[in-house]
C-alpha cells in the first residue's frame, strides 16, 4: 500500500469527512430545503402572527404574552421549530437510507471510518442545515421588524440547540427501527404535530390545562422557545428556569448522541 493512508488522522477527522459528504448531497436539494425551511414558518408567521395576532391584541392587548407583540411571541417558537424539522429531515432520512434503502453506511464503514463517526457526521451535517435555515429565518424576522438586531441574535444558537437535542434522539430512533413505515406515521402524527401545537408555541404553556402541560415539559421545542423568548425579549422567566431549560436540552442532546453512536456501531457490526 503506497497511497499514504494516515489512520490516526482519519480517527480524528472521520466524522468531518462524513459531514462534508452529507453536505454535498444536501446541496443538490438546496432550493427545496430553503423553500421548505423558510417558507413554512414564514406562512405561519404571516397567517398566525399577523392574522390571528390582530385578534389576540384586540381582545387582550399583550397582557397574555407578558407585554410582547403576538408576532414576536410566536417567532422564537417558529424559529426553534425550523431547526427541529430541518434536523429531523437530515437525521431520519439519511439514517434509514444509510442502513436500509441504499446501504451507504455500509460502504462508508468499509473504509477506516467507524460507525460512531458516521453517526456524528450525519448529525453535524444536520446541524449545519439547521443553522443555515435558522440564520436565514432570523434575517427575515429582522426584515419584518419582529425582532431588533442585538441580543436577539441568541435566538439562533438557542434554536439550533433545541433542534440538536431533538435531532440526537431522532438519530438514535432512526438507527434503531427496522420498519420505517410505522415509524413515519407515529413520528409525524403523534410526535411532531402535538409537539408543535402543545409546546407553548402559540400561547403560554401555563394557559393549558395542567394535564396537558407535561407534553411541553418534555418537549425540546418548549424549552428552546422559552429560552428564546427570554433572551430576545426579557420574557420574565427566572434564572433557575433558564438553567433548567439549558440543562434539559444539553442532557437530551448528550443522551441522544451516546445512544445513537452506540446503535450505529452495533447495527453496522452485525
Amino acid at each position: 500500500m503506497n497511497a499514504g493512508i494516515d489512520v490516526p488522522t482519519i480517527e480524528r477527522f472521520g466524522a468531518l469527512y462524513i459531514a462534508s459528504a452529507r453536505l454535498k448531497s444536501m446541496s443538490k436539494w438546496r432550493t427545496i430545503i430553503a423553500a421548505v425551511d423558510i417558507g413554512n414558518p414564514l406562512f405561519y408567521l404571516i397567517a398566525v402572527g399577523i392574522g390571528i395576532g390582530v385578534m389576540v391584541e384586540q381582545g387582550s392587548g399583550t397582557s397574555g404574552t407578558n407585554g410582547i407583540k403576538y408576532i414576536a411571541f410566536i417567532a422564537p417558537a417558529l424559529l426553534a421549530n425550523t431547526a427541529i424539522t430541518g434536523i429531523m429531515d437530515e437525521t431520519v432520512f439519511p439514517t434509514i437510507e444509510g442502513f436500509k434503502w441504499r446501504k451507504l453506511f455500509f460502504a462508508q464503514n468499509s473504509t477506516p471510518i467507524t460507525g460512531r463517526q458516521i453517526a456524528l457526521g450525519v448529525y453535524l451535517a444536520a446541524l449545519c442545515r439547521a443553522l443555515f435555515s435558522v440564520i436565514v429565518y432570523y434575517i427575515l424576522l429582522l426584515a419584518f421588524d419582529v425582532v431588533n438586531f442585538g441580543i436577539s441574535i441568541l435566538l439562533v444558537p438557542i434554536a439550533v440547540l433545541g433542534g440538536g437535542a431533538f435531532g440526537a434522539l431522532m438519530l438514535f430512533a432512526a438507527a434503531k427501527i427496522e420498519k420505517e413505515d410505522q415509524f413515519f406515521n407515529i413520528l409525524g402524527r403523534l410526535v411532531i404535530m402535538p409537539m408543535f401545537l402543545f409546546s407553548g408555541t402559540f400561547f403560554p404553556l401555563s394557559s393549558m390545562p395542567i394535564y396537558l402541560q407535561p407534553i411541553g415539559w418534555i418537549s425540546p421545542l418548549w424549552h428552546a422557545t422559552e429560552l428564546g423568548r427570554e433572551s430576545a425579549f426579557n420574557y420574565g422567566i427566572s434564572t433557575t428556569m433558564v438553567v433548567v431549560h439549558l440543562v434539559f436540552l444539553f442532557t437530551l442532546l448528550v443522551i441522544g448522541l451516546v445512544l445513537a453512536t452506540r446503535q450505529f456501531e452495533r447495527r453496522l457490526s452485525k
Binding site: M1, I10, S25, F106, A107, T111
Partner: peptide, 20 residues
C-alpha cells in the same frame, strides 16, 4: 478495525454506490 480496513478494498454483493 480502522487500521485493517485501511488496507482493504471491499466490493459488496449489493452495490452501495451513491446513485445521486
Amino acid at each position: 478495525g480502522p487500521l485493517v480496513r485501511a488496507h482493504l478494498g471491499v466490493v459488496p454483493q449489493q452495490d452501495n454506490l451513491d446513485g445521486e
